[in-house]
Design a binder for these strands. Structure first.
Length: 302
DNA sequence: CCCATCCCCTGTATGC
DNA sequence: TGCATACAGGGGATGG
């Protein structure tokens, strides 16, 4: 469910409690939350117990937390988290009751904040935690937001940098867009081209740039591509400032609170309603097993 | 290689 | 009320 703004809200909420904290206990309630973990459940628990968290980082929709090894091995590893459609990372008081859909709990001790519980809860179980080795980035820039060294977890290496990353290679992005014949919306959702954009913000950015979602990416002019990237950044920035988009209790910050950006959506979820810009009727149609929302009047097919 | 389809899973809303 | 169906913000595997 969560896209870049929602994941960034979680990252920034976790960081003050997790950086410099030591993991005192690991409880795996449901092994399905470790399907992406390359080792066993026991390996996950054992490697994390006693580890000290060094940073909380994000690229696109992926989170990771590098930690100091406890077993004397020299391979640096990180806890990688992906929230999937319904994952939550919650900060709770130590000993707080088990949450609904709780899959994994990390008990931590922080030098300033004392004992806390970090709960990974996930209704639909598309999300996961994993331990993964850290690899050097190919461009020698920091791995992501919140990272101070040039490494990314192996599982994140194929994910492109996101629109808010200062190290995003815009030339590469424009080259990829200019080469792809697929619909621009599909390309926006391709996390190996640019990361962090999901169904909501793809629809919002295309609405903002007045581009029809089925426009072939290679048919976009340089001017359109510039406008689209600016709209992507703008909508992600605004959503982040509002604490993200919450339609229901699924997306919440680390304290269980909803964001406010759902009130600011112009196209997403508004099929049949008037376009806020031109008063035409917004349309909702099936797209890639999901839905696209756009205004056929001011987002003309070219 | 590129692209489109299908799959994983659970809960809620809707229609018959 | 009960049941079936569609749908939901994700990524990855797997075919053509």
């Amino acid at each position: 469910m969560p896209e870049l703004p929602e994941v960034e809200v979680v990252r920034s909420g976790l960081a003050p409690a997790l950086v410099d904290a030591t993991v005192s206990a690991v409880t795996v309630h449901d092994a399905r939350a470790l399907t992406r973990h390359p080792g066993s459940v026991e390996d996950f628990e054992h490697a994390l117990r006693g580890a000290r968290v060094v940073a909380v980082c994000r690229r696109g929709k992926f989170l990771w937390m590098p930690f100091t090894p406890t077993d004397g091995s020299d391979t640096a590893r990180a806890v990688v988290a992906h929230l999937g459609m319904s994952g939550q990372m919650l900060l709770r008081a130590s000993g707080a009751p088990v949450e609904r859909h709780e899959r994994i709990r990390l008990d931590i001790d922080h030098p300033d904040h004392g004992a806390l519980a970090v709960v990974f809860a996930d209704q639909r179980t598309f999300g996961s935690l994993a331990l993964d080795p850290l690899l050097p980035t190919t461009d020698a820039a920091p791995g992501g937001f919140g990272a101070d060294d040039a490494t990314v977890p192996a599982q994140v290496a194929h994910i492109a940098r996101d629109p808010l990353d200062p190290a995003l290679d815009e030339t590469r992005l424009r080259t990829l867009w200019a080469r792809k014949r697929s619909a621009i919306k599909r390309v926006l959702l391709d996390q190996t081209v640019i990361s962090g954009v999901g169904n909501i913000y793809a629809d919002e950015a295309l609405w903002g740039a007045r581009i029809h979602p089925e426009t072939p990416a290679d048919a976009l002019s340089a001017r359109h591509a510039t406008r689209l990237l600016a709209e992507v950044r703008s909508v992600l920035d605004k959503a982040l400032a509002e604490g993200g988009t919450s339609f229901d209790a699924q997306y919440v910050n680390v304290n269980g609170q909803a964001g406010y950006f759902a009130h600011s959506l112009n196209a997403y979820g508004r099929g049949g309603e008037p376009c806020p810009r031109c008063d035409g009727e917004l349309r909702r149609e099936a797209f890639m097993n999901r839905s696209s929302h756009y205004c056929p009047r001011c987002q003309r097919r070219r």
